[in-house]
Design a protein around this nucleic acid. Structure first.
Length: 272
DNA sequence: CTGGTTGTTAACCG
DNA sequence: ACGGTTAACAACCA
């Protein structure tokens, strides 16, 4: 559940369901996803209690007692699912059991991370300390404008996907965000008018709000193991090569933008 | 068997 | 230094 809508909802559900629970046991089936030896994590985590769960972009942050933090990234596809007695999922890389016999399992489709850090290490943690602000729901238009002013030469797609600028946008939602703002992915940030910048800000909020309202992406599972209601049917141009643009009926094109492909309407989204 | 993919980083190039 | 492009990680699907 890699992008912001999925992680945002997961953090909310985890905060609702896990605060106050005490960790009894940790199971790690893939040592590459953790940042310390398995034995030291299994020694450190038990007796810790969950204080709060927050999200930052595509990262989950479990705040524990004793100033420890568990930082989780589900990589490219993956789920984190709650259980009350025994896990509902059979395959998992990471599992946490609480003293009340509930717990959760984490399964990565591709590579993900579960890092245990001290509070004072948060500012030096290489994977999260350089993240920009989450794009939803608290980012203001003023912050968004000043971030863009720092990167005038970057292409707008590359700008939005770079987590050091803004945290949370990924390759699934980027197509419709740029379509809603009527922008070409390779347009330089510095060439965007004030109106373009405002439209882009609104587009990000519209797309993410629409997905969150439907329970996020339908290709991922939430904390309770249920899939969301936002899928390709809810997208305007993403993954719709050859279908008519909902705005002007021109056939949607699939183009290469660097290493990834991008779906756009060649009539509505043009580059200067 | 081949190619593509919702994420992230490092290495390389101009 | 900066932005763009690739490869690697390694799992699943068409």
């Amino acid at each position: 559940m890699p992008e912001l809508p999925e992680i945002f909802l997961l953090a909310k559900d985890m905060d609702k369901g896990l605060v106050g629970k005490e960790i009894r046991e940790v199971t790690i089936n893939q040592n590459k996803c953790v940042n310390k030896p398995i034995e030291s994590i299994q020694k450190e985590l038990p007796t810790e209690t969950v204080k709060a769960v927050n999200s930052h972009g595509k990262w989950l942050q479990l705040e524990l007692t004793m100033d420890k933090y568990l930082l989780i990234n589900l990589g490219m596809g993956g789920d984190l699912i709650y259980f009350t007695q025994t896990p509902t999922e059979k395959k998992y890389q990471f599992r946490l059991d609480f003293t009340d016999n509930s717990g959760f399992t984490i399964r990565f489709w591709w590579f993900g991370y579960v890092h245990l850090v001290e509070k004072h290490e948060l500012t030096s943690h290489s994977l999260t300390s350089k993240l920009g602000p989450s794009v939803y729901p608290d980012l203001t238009i003023e912050q968004f404008r000043s971030l863009m002013e720092k990167k005038p030469r970057q292409g707008v797609k590359s700008f939005l996907l770079d987590q050091k600028n803004l945290a949370g946008i990924g390759n699934f939602y980027i197509h419709d965000i740029l379509f809603n703002a009527k922008l070409h992915p390779l347009q330089k940030v510095g060439n965007l008018s004030i109106r373009d910048r405002n439209k882009l800000f609104i587009a990000i909020n519209e797309v993410f709000r629409a997905s969150i309202n439907l329970g996020a992406a339908d290709y991922e599972k939430n904390f309770w193991g249920e899939t969301g209601g936002f899928g390709q049917d809810q997208l305007a141009v993403g993954y719709k090569e050859g279908k008519p643009c909902p705005n002007c009926s021109t056939a949607i094109e699939k183009i290469k933008t660097g290493g990834t492909s991008h779906f756009l309407c060649p009539h509505c989204q043009v580059c200067d």
